[in-house]
Structure formats: structure tokens, C-alpha cells
């Protein structure tokens, strides 16, 4: 990858978020700064309540930050946009549309029709290996297949940032492993930038170029760890386990600190 491609692609500057809860205000995110390079695979990890999903939703444009700004290639974002595609844990597929219609939805909004639309849909149906299921409705698919459709749906819309909010959290262990593997293949093939929220240290260590550890109360970045293990990664190797252990320690050390603080 050349230097030009490595320059800051997605920049999060001084982003904070406060929610009103009744008469109270909760500070979900204290000023967060984070820069992500083009094509990077970044995992946000942390205990629940650390604001990792909130941060992701702000990047998606679903929520406005209370302060700060987010820019993609220097252009400030103001709302949801097709350049950033969210993959939800609960899939959020359109249940009345077939697999093909779900994947065609984005291109259709951009005015694509007929043979051109079919060609785009075919390409991404093939990318996620759902050729035999194009006419099925989401209710007729397994969880793993639904999540494949969700990934194809945002990629077909030419998203260059994939925002994934615990996307494999609702899947069984075998399907999760399979989808992690497929996601890495898709990432390598398309060069898409991925921000992936998870609370699994193992998942983050397996997938990420970089693990951003967040802490709660209010949410902020606690550590930013580059993962330099060669790919494909072997979860059974001692190197992998070493990295995983050090990330886990980083994650639990502040949990322990917080517990001490509340105890005192």
C-alpha cells in the first residue's frame, strides 16, 4: 500500500456524546479522537456501556455528536450516507424483499435499473456465496445467511467503510468462525475499511490490524494496540495466544481499577 493510501481516511476529532435520561444527563462518550487509515481493519472493544456502539452509530450518521466532528477524506459528515454501510447485529434486512431485492436496494436508490442492476446484484450475491438463495425471503434464511446478505447489501452500495456492530454476536460458534473467515476474504479482495465492534478479545485479535480498547464512565479510548500477527492467523498458535492474553490484560486491568474505585 502506498503512502497516499495510508493517509488519514476517516478522522474522528473531539467527538463526545451526552444523552438526556429523564432530568439527568449521561455522558456516553468523553472527547474521543481516532484516525483510521484507508483499508484498515479496526476493532473497537470494551465492556458494555463503554460507548463503542454509540461511537459507531455516530460514525454511521444515525446520531449526532454533542461536540466534535467526523470526516471522511477531509469531508465532514452530517448524516447517514452510502459511503458508510452499517451491518447490524440483528441484520435489519427488509423482510418483505428477497435476497436479490435486499442487495439491489442501494443501487436502485441511485437510479440503477435493468441489466445494470442485475449485474451489480449478481456480483455481490456471488461474493457472499448466496447464488442458490436469491429468491428467498429473510425469514427463510439462517442467521449466517442473513448476515451475508447484510454485508452484500452495503458493499453493493459501494460503501467504502463497513461499520459492524457485533455482527456475529447472535450466531452459533461454527457459523461465526465461518463468517469471520469469509469477512477477512472479502476485506482482502475489496480493500474496504472496516470498523468492527465486538466484546470478544479472541475475535478482535483474529480479525484486526488494530484494536482500540475503550473504557466506560464516560466512554473514552484507553489503549490503541497494533496487531502485527501475520495472516492467516492461527488461533491455536502460541503467538496468537500471547497477543490475545496481552489485549485481555489491558481490558481487564482497567475493569479491576474501576471495581476498586467503586468499592472505595
Amino acid at each position: 500500500m502506498s503512502d497516499a493510501e495510508r493517509r488519514p481516511f476517516l478522522a474522528i476529532r473531539g467527538v463526545s456524546k451526552r444523552f438526556a435520561v429523564g432530568d439527568d444527563e449521561i455522558e456516553a462518550l468523553a472527547s474521543v479522537d481516532l484516525t483510521i487509515a484507508r483499508g484498515q481493519f479496526a476493532c473497537l472493544i470494551g465492556a458494555s456501556g463503554c460507548g463503542k456502539s454509540t461511537l459507531l452509530r455516530i460514525v454511521a450518521g444515525f446520531e449526532e455528536p454533542s461536540s466534535g466532528e467526523i470526516s471522511v477524506y477531509g469531508k465532514s459528515i452530517t448524516g447517514p450516507g452510502s459511503d458508510r454501510g452499517m451491518v447490524f447485529q440483528e441484520y435489519a434486512l427488509f423482510p418483505w424483499m428477497t435476497v436479490r431485492q435486499n442487495i439491489s436496494f442501494g443501487p436502485r436508490q441511485r437510479g440503477k435499473r435493468g441489466a445494470e442492476l442485475d449485474a451489480i446484484a449478481d456480483e455481490y450475491i456471488k461474493l457472499v456465496g448466496l447464488e442458490r438463495f436469491t429468491e428467498r425471503f429473510p425469514s427463510q434464511l439462517s442467521g449466517g445467511m442473513k448476515q451475508r446478505v447484510a454485508i452484500a447489501r452495503v458493499l453493493a452500495n459501494e460503501a467504502n467503510v463497513l461499520l459492524m456492530d457485533e455482527p456475529f454476536g447472535a450466531l452459533d460458534a461454527l457459523t461465526r468462525e465461518q463468517l469471520q473467515f469469509e469477512l477477512l476474504q472479502i476485506w482482502e479482495r475489496t480493500g474496504v475499511t472496516i470498523i468492527f465492534v465486538t466484546h470478544s478479545v479472541e475475535e478482535a485479535t483474529l480479525l484486526a490490524d488494530r484494536i482500540v480498547v475503550m473504557t466506560a464512565g464516560p466512554g473514552r479510548i484507553d489503549a490503541d494496540i497494533a496487531i502485527e500477527l501475520p495472516r492467516p492467523r492461527d488461533v491455536a498458535s502460541p503467538e496468537f495466544n500471547g497477543v490475545r492474553r496481552s489485549v485481555a490484560q489491558r481490558l481487564t486491568s482497567h475493569l479491576a481499577r474501576r471495581d476498586l474505585k467503586t468499592a472505595a
Partner: peptide, 13 residues
């Protein structure tokens, strides 16, 4: 499901 509106908005609808 409000996520359907979010999904549609992010896909340009």
C-alpha cells in the same frame, strides 16, 4: 423496527 429506517437511510433512501 427503527433499524429498518436507519438501514434504508444509509442505503440512500
Amino acid at each position: 423496527d427503527p433499524r429498518l429506517f436507519e438501514a434504508a437511510a444509509m442505503l440512500g433512501c
